[in-house]
Amino acid sequence: VSVELPAPSSWKKLFYPNKVGSVKKTEVVFVAPTGEEISNRKQLEQYLKSHPGNPAIAEFDWTTSG
């Protein structure tokens, strides 16, 4: 189950709350306009370098507050 949070234009930000008793931590995933899922800052940096014209990296908020 995921919750969609505010994201930069043409992107989606999905929040996957951890299940009770789960060892997996809460996860935030950005979905690029191409449909590619980005789950960490390093991936995001690589994606933005190879896909010019996207929002600046500073516009991506990895917190769950939206």
Score class of each variant (00 low, 15 high):
residue 1 V to A: 11
residue 1 V to G: 11
residue 1 V to E: 13
residue 1 V to C: 14
residue 1 V to P: 15
residue 1 V to S: 11
residue 1 V to M: 11
residue 2 S to F: 15
residue 2 S to D: 06
residue 3 V to K: 07
residue 3 V to P: 05
residue 3 V to I: 14
residue 3 V to F: 11
residue 3 V to H: 09
residue 4 E to W: 08
residue 4 E to V: 09
residue 4 E to S: 10
residue 5 L to Q: 07
residue 5 L to V: 06
residue 5 L to C: 08
residue 5 L to M: 12
residue 6 P to I: 07
residue 6 P to D: 09
residue 6 P to H: 08
residue 7 A to D: 04
residue 7 A to G: 06
residue 7 A to H: 05
residue 7 A to Q: 05
residue 8 P to Q: 04
residue 8 P to H: 05
residue 9 S to Y: 10
residue 9 S to C: 12
residue 9 S to G: 15
residue 9 S to M: 12
residue 9 S to A: 14
residue 9 S to H: 14
residue 10 S to W: 07
residue 10 S to Y: 11
residue 10 S to Q: 14
residue 10 S to T: 11
residue 11 W to C: 03
residue 11 W to Y: 01
residue 11 W to F: 03
residue 11 W to N: 02
residue 12 K to V: 09
residue 12 K to M: 07
residue 12 K to R: 13
residue 12 K to F: 05
residue 12 K to E: 04
residue 13 K to E: 03
residue 13 K to T: 03
residue 13 K to L: 03
residue 14 L to F: 14
residue 14 L to S: 03
residue 15 F to R: 04
residue 16 Y to C: 06
residue 16 Y to N: 06
residue 16 Y to S: 06
residue 16 Y to W: 08
residue 16 Y to K: 09
residue 17 P to H: 11
residue 17 P to I: 15
residue 17 P to Y: 14
residue 17 P to F: 15
residue 18 N to G: 13
residue 18 N to Y: 11
residue 18 N to C: 13
residue 18 N to I: 10
residue 19 K to R: 15
residue 19 K to A: 14
residue 19 K to Y: 12
residue 20 V to N: 11
residue 20 V to M: 10
residue 20 V to D: 15
residue 20 V to T: 12
residue 20 V to F: 09
residue 20 V to L: 13
residue 20 V to W: 11
residue 21 G to P: 08
residue 21 G to K: 03
residue 21 G to W: 03
residue 22 S to G: 14
residue 22 S to D: 14
residue 22 S to V: 07
residue 22 S to M: 08
residue 22 S to I: 08
residue 24 K to M: 15
residue 24 K to E: 15
residue 24 K to P: 15
residue 24 K to Y: 13
residue 25 K to A: 11
residue 25 K to M: 08
residue 25 K to T: 10
residue 25 K to H: 15
residue 25 K to R: 11
residue 26 T to V: 11
residue 26 T to N: 14
residue 27 E to I: 15
residue 27 E to V: 15
residue 27 E to Y: 15
residue 28 V to H: 02
residue 28 V to P: 03
residue 28 V to N: 01
residue 29 V to T: 08
residue 29 V to W: 06
residue 29 V to Y: 08
residue 29 V to A: 06
residue 29 V to N: 03
residue 30 F to E: 00
residue 30 F to S: 00
residue 31 V to I: 15
residue 31 V to R: 06
residue 31 V to L: 11
residue 32 A to P: 03
residue 32 A to D: 01
residue 32 A to H: 00
residue 33 P to V: 02
residue 33 P to N: 02
residue 33 P to K: 00
residue 33 P to H: 02
residue 34 T to Y: 01
residue 34 T to F: 02
residue 34 T to N: 07
residue 34 T to M: 02
residue 34 T to P: 00
residue 35 G to W: 01
residue 35 G to T: 01
residue 36 E to Q: 07
residue 36 E to K: 04
residue 36 E to A: 04
residue 36 E to P: 01
residue 37 E to P: 08
residue 37 E to W: 15
residue 37 E to N: 10
residue 38 I to E: 00
residue 38 I to Q: 00
residue 38 I to H: 01
residue 38 I to T: 00
residue 38 I to S: 00
residue 38 I to P: 00
residue 39 S to N: 10
residue 40 N to A: 04
residue 40 N to I: 03
residue 40 N to S: 13
residue 40 N to R: 04
residue 41 R to M: 13
residue 41 R to W: 10
residue 42 K to C: 14
residue 42 K to G: 12
residue 42 K to M: 12
residue 42 K to A: 12
residue 43 Q to S: 08
residue 43 Q to N: 06
residue 43 Q to R: 06
residue 43 Q to W: 05
residue 44 L to Y: 02
residue 44 L to N: 00
residue 44 L to A: 00
residue 44 L to P: 00
residue 45 E to S: 09
residue 45 E to Q: 10
residue 45 E to Y: 11
residue 45 E to L: 11
residue 45 E to V: 09
residue 46 Q to I: 13
residue 46 Q to D: 14
residue 46 Q to W: 10
residue 47 Y to N: 00
residue 47 Y to M: 00
residue 47 Y to H: 03
residue 47 Y to E: 00
residue 48 L to E: 00
residue 48 L to S: 01
residue 48 L to C: 02
residue 48 L to M: 04
residue 48 L to R: 01
residue 48 L to N: 01
residue 49 K to Q: 13
residue 49 K to R: 10
residue 50 S to W: 08
residue 50 S to V: 09
residue 50 S to F: 09
residue 51 H to V: 02
residue 51 H to E: 02
residue 51 H to S: 02
residue 51 H to F: 06
residue 51 H to K: 03
residue 52 P to D: 06
residue 52 P to W: 04
residue 52 P to Q: 05
residue 53 G to I: 04
residue 53 G to H: 06
residue 53 G to R: 05
residue 53 G to W: 05
residue 54 N to P: 06
residue 54 N to I: 02
residue 55 P to A: 06
residue 55 P to Q: 04
residue 55 P to D: 03
residue 55 P to S: 03
residue 55 P to T: 04
residue 56 A to W: 04
residue 56 A to N: 14
residue 56 A to L: 11
residue 56 A to D: 12
residue 56 A to S: 14
residue 57 I to T: 05
residue 57 I to V: 08
residue 57 I to Y: 12
residue 57 I to H: 04
residue 58 A to G: 13
residue 58 A to D: 14
residue 59 E to Y: 06
residue 59 E to F: 07
residue 59 E to A: 09
residue 59 E to V: 06
residue 59 E to R: 04
residue 59 E to W: 05
residue 59 E to T: 06
residue 59 E to G: 04
residue 60 F to Q: 01
residue 60 F to D: 02
residue 60 F to H: 00
residue 60 F to Y: 03
residue 61 D to W: 05
residue 61 D to N: 07
residue 61 D to H: 07
residue 61 D to V: 07
residue 61 D to I: 08
residue 62 W to N: 02
residue 62 W to G: 01
residue 62 W to I: 01
residue 62 W to Y: 03
residue 62 W to R: 01
residue 62 W to A: 01
residue 62 W to S: 01
residue 63 T to G: 12
residue 63 T to L: 06
residue 63 T to P: 03
residue 64 T to Q: 07
residue 64 T to N: 09
residue 64 T to L: 09
residue 64 T to C: 09
residue 64 T to A: 13
residue 66 G to R: 05
residue 66 G to D: 14
residue 66 G to N: 12
residue 66 G to L: 12
residue 66 G to V: 12
